[in-house]
């Protein structure tokens, strides 16, 4: 048992014959903010989705706070944990998606309250007050009773982040949360994430915003063809890439 918050060992994942993760190792401790960069198809989103068991994986292990996620080994046989157990483990992490995925038939507040009431079994009043607290934190207290259709993309994404964080996860996963946004809305979302990072929230971000990755993370992982191509602190990574692949990638991306 280590003191690591997240521990990924030799993660393998295939879709049919196509192997998209070819043995990924990664550890992070409480308070780490790690950005995962890389070209599309490098496996970075898949890795994030494995941590939340939105994807099955065929080999290796993922531990959060020492708990093995998704699978258990019984009598030498690796098998998927019960759905109930997996649902409980998913609540250890929070996830924000590229497409926000707010529930369109619920107000902003109800979106945040749903998990608190159904998973954490809080009363409606408790859930409401937690929801309001978090909507306030993302600057949307006044929009609590608006429906997703009435909010801009940036506002929707902030509600989605509040929805995930209100569950009090140990680790937040951000999957390209600004990719679907109009350029002028990107900043408000990044600002929210930055504040959370400064407050000590552990997070793992898949992002195309190189400037942002450079500023908020204490570590950067460069994924390349299903493996970790290079990792280190952002200063070294962006200014003195050690591999040809990374310097190529940085040239084509908008970091300058």
């Amino acid at each position: 048992m280590t003191g690591n918050l997240l521990e990924i060992r030799d993660l393998h994942k295939s879709y049919g014959d196509v192997e998209v993760l070819k043995g990924v190792d990664c550890t992070m401790v409480q308070g780490d903010v790690i950005s995962i960069i890389g070209s599309s198809g490098s496996g970075k989103t898949t890795m994030l989705r494995c941590i939340n068991m939105l994807e099955e994986f065929q080999g290796g292990s993922i531990r959060i706070d020492g708990q093995e996620i998704g699978y258990e080994t019984v009598g030498g046989q690796r098998r998927r944990k019960s759905e109930k157990e997996i649902a409980r483990q998913r609540a250890l992490t929070g996830m924000a998606f590229q497409q926000f995925n707010l529930f369109p038939h619920m107000s902003a507040a109800r979106n945040v309250m749903l998990g608190l009431m159904k998973v954490k079994k809080l009363s409606k009043e408790e859930a409401r007050s937690i929801a309001e607290k978090w909507l306030d934190r993302v600057g949307l207290r006044a929009r609590a009773d608006h429906f997703p259709g009435q909010l801009s993309g940036g506002q929707q994404q902030r509600v989605a982040i509040a929805r995930a964080i209100a569950m009090n996860p140990k680790l937040m996963l951000f999957d390209e949360v600004t990719s679907a946004l109009d350029p002028e809305l990107v900043n408000e979302v990044l600002q929210v994430i930055k504040t959370l990072a400064q407050e000590g929230m552990s997070m793992l971000l898949v992002t195309h915003e190189m400037r942002f990755a450079y500023e908020v993370s204490n570590r950067v992982i460069f994924m390349n063809q299903g493996r970790i191509g290079e990792e280190g602190n952002p200063r070294e990574m962006f200014h003195k890439p050690r591999t040809e692949r990374l310097s190529e990638f940085l040239k084509t991306s908008s970091f300058n």
């Binding site: 939105l54 998913r90 929070g94 707010l102 159904k118 995930a164």
Partner: peptide, 22 residues
């Protein structure tokens, strides 16, 4: 959209809860 089911899963809802409330 499939994303709504995933968002439900991500906050720890069970498949049944996702069906009934989303």
């Amino acid at each position: 959209p499939a994303g709504l089911r995933e968002a439900g899963l991500a906050i720890g809802l069970t498949e049944m809860q996702i069906r009934t409330s989303i």
